[in-house]
């Protein structure tokens, strides 16, 4: 307690001017200012300048890259739109071509089919006619044979021909 009071007594007037602290502060600050101005602030200023230049440069480069990317994107989108349109047109054209080919094929097939049917019908008719003719011939031969057997006599070629003609005539009239 007493020691502190004594210490307090040792303290000077708070607002009195004392030369030694003032001169010391003046000189020490002057020295510090001089040394800092030569060895410290230029280094810090340069470093901050470089850093700012770097940051500004990076930002500028990034902005340029972004602008370029935006341009490229627009170009790409335009190309994509063109490609899409072109593809759509190609698909449309392909569909039309396919439809046209299909129609042609269908028509050709139908025509061929009709031709084949007609040809088949003609063949059938010819075959039918041949069969009928053969049937007539065999029927005539059979009838002749039967008749010969009934008459018990030999029929010659002239009789045969006459009988056939008669039979055919009868057959034709009976068919009507």
């Amino acid at each position: 307690m007493q020691s502190l009071l004594l210490a307090a007594e040792g303290a000077g007037n708070p607002v009195s001017f004392e030369i030694l602290p003032a001169v010391t502060a003046f000189v020490v600050f002057g020295l510090a200012f001089g040394i800092l101005s030569v060895f410290v602030w230029p280094k810090i200023a340069t470093a901050l300048d470089e850093r700012n230049a770097k940051i500004v440069g990076e930002i500028k480069a990034a902005e340029e890259a972004r602008a370029a990317a935006k341009g490229a994107q627009a170009e790409f989108e335009k190309s994509l739109a063109n490609a899409r349109e072109e593809a759509a047109n190609m698909i449309k054209q392909a569909r039309a071509d396919a439809q046209r080919v299909a129609d042609e094929l269908k028509a050709r097939n139908e025509q061929e089919l009709a031709e084949r049917v007609a040809r088949a019908n003609a063949d059938i008719e010819a075959a039918r006619k041949a069969a009928v003719a053969e049937l007539h011939a065999q029927s005539a031969a059979l009838a002749l044979d039967v008749a010969s057997k009934i008459l018990r006599r030999q029929v010659n070629e002239q009789d045969n021909g006459r009988l056939v003609q008669e039979s055919l005539s009868e057959l034709a009239s009976s068919r009507r």
């Binding site: 502190l4 210490a7 040792g10 708070p14 602290p21 003032a22 003046f26 600050f29």
Partner: peptide, 25 residues
């Protein structure tokens, strides 16, 4: 305790003389 035992301490800027020197700058 009158002063011989303290080597360092206190606030220099609480001394008006020091502040006057800085203000002189």
């Amino acid at each position: 305790a009158k002063g011989a035992l303290l080597w360092i301490g206190g606030t220099a800027t609480a001394c008006l003389s020091v502040n006057i020197a800085l203000a002189a700058w």
